[in-house]
């Protein structure tokens, strides 16, 4: 055993140990984002939503206004050869869902928002889950989280009018020519009068993995079996779409066809702003049947995070950076509203 150090050598070694620990702590602080350049984080995106739409404790931080539904998915068996996921072969898969309108304000009038969404959780009998969040537009305006953040900033409501500044939006779209397909969609979009006759699109691409391990990229859409009718030009009811859905479900179940669109070589599978050319082969994987609506904002869907990366074996994410960012931001939103629910007893 050697003797303890004293004097200068002792001081030097203590200083070296202190320096080493400080370096480790600094590395931790840098990794956590406490020091160093400001980065685009899930927290910053959700902060921006809340800064624009106001703080609404307990609500989802985007697509805040919605309602819970339930039903089942009837697989056609036609996609079973493309993916080993049990949902594509099981006859009847229980589904929990949520219809919502876009935006972070849970009190927006239903008819004021062009974007609508449907989020689903399919629970197959092999114990696996598939969660997917789908929107009415088939593409996004941009293909990266950074550009998406710039788009959110460009849509900041002008305090004078309460609406986004058109010149700022125009400048954003001019700087982002990849938004052409989205702008075309927005131009041609005719709002329907119901959640029931809207189409919902996965936007991001995913890989279906068959039993042999072969991967094929797809996007999916839910195509309504309810015929289109245009939204009336004057809508007085703030909760028009919710009341409509209740009314329709009181008369019987509503159906959508789950259609998979298969990418060809060279199609943009990692860029949700780029549509795939028409004439791509499609497969009708089955029928979504929604037969029940829960109380507004209540029900089983409320306490779920519809993270689009919760996928069963047989479906894998693409390398689309927006897909990863959605997953990260949904998680931040879920954590934040769960804290609000716990602290304030805030339950929308």
């Amino acid at each position: 055993m050697t003797t303890p150090l004293h004097g200068r050598p002792r001081a030097l070694r203590l200083a070296a140990i202190g320096l080493g620990l400080t370096a480790l702590a600094a590395g931790f602080a840098y990794t956590a984002g406490w020091i160093g350049n400001e980065r685009l984080t899930p927290k910053r995106i959700i902060d921006t939503f809340e800064a624009q739409a106001g703080h609404h404790p307990g609500y989802r931080k985007n697509h805040a206004k919605g309602l819970c539904v339930s039903g089942y998915f009837q697989s056609s068996g036609e996609a079973a050869g493309l993916s080993s996921a049990r949902v594509f072969s099981q006859a009847r898969v229980p589904v929990i869902g949520r219809f919502a309108i876009g935006g972070a304000n849970p009190h927006s009038p239903d008819a004021s928002v062009p974007t609508r969404s449907l989020a689903l959780q399919l629970s197959s009998d092999d114990g696996q889950q598939w969660r997917t969040g789908m929107n009415t537009p088939p593409v996004l305006a941009v293909g990266t989280p950074e550009a998406f953040y710039q788009q959110v900033l460009a849509m900041t409501p002008d305090p004078a009018t309460g609406k986004p500044d058109p010149s700022r939006l125009q400048a954003f779209f001019a700087a982002h020519p990849e938004s052409a397909a989205f702008r075309q969609w927005a131009k041609d979009y005719k709002a329907s009068d119901s959640f029931a006759n809207s189409s919902y699109n996965s936007i991001n691409a995913f890989a279906l993995i068959d039993a042999e391990g072969k991967a094929r990229y797809v996007r999916w859409s839910l195509l309504p079996q309810t015929p289109f009718a245009a939204l009336p030009t004057q809508v007085e009811d703030n909760d028009y779409l919710q009341h409509d859905l209740r009314q329709r479900l009181s008369l019987g179940p509503l159906r959508w066809t789950l259609q998979l669109t298969l990418a060809a070589a060279g199609d943009a599978v990692n860029d949700p702003s780029q549509p795939w050319p028409g004439q791509r082969p499609t497969v009708d994987a089955g029928t979504l049947v929604i037969d029940q609506v829960d109380a507004a904002q209540q029900g089983a869907c409320r306490d779920l995070n519809f993270d689009p990366l919760i996928l069963p074996t047989g479906i894998k994410p693409s390398a689309d950076p927006i897909l990863a960012a959605r997953s990260a931001a949904y998680s931040e939103s879920f954590n934040r509203r769960s804290r609000e629910a716990a602290q304030l007893g805030a339950r929308p």
Partner: peptide, 17 residues
Amino acid sequence: MLFIGVSMVNDLSPRHT
């Protein structure tokens, strides 16, 4: 784990997943 944990909650790139 400690470094992965504090890193992943601040990350929204495909690395997050």
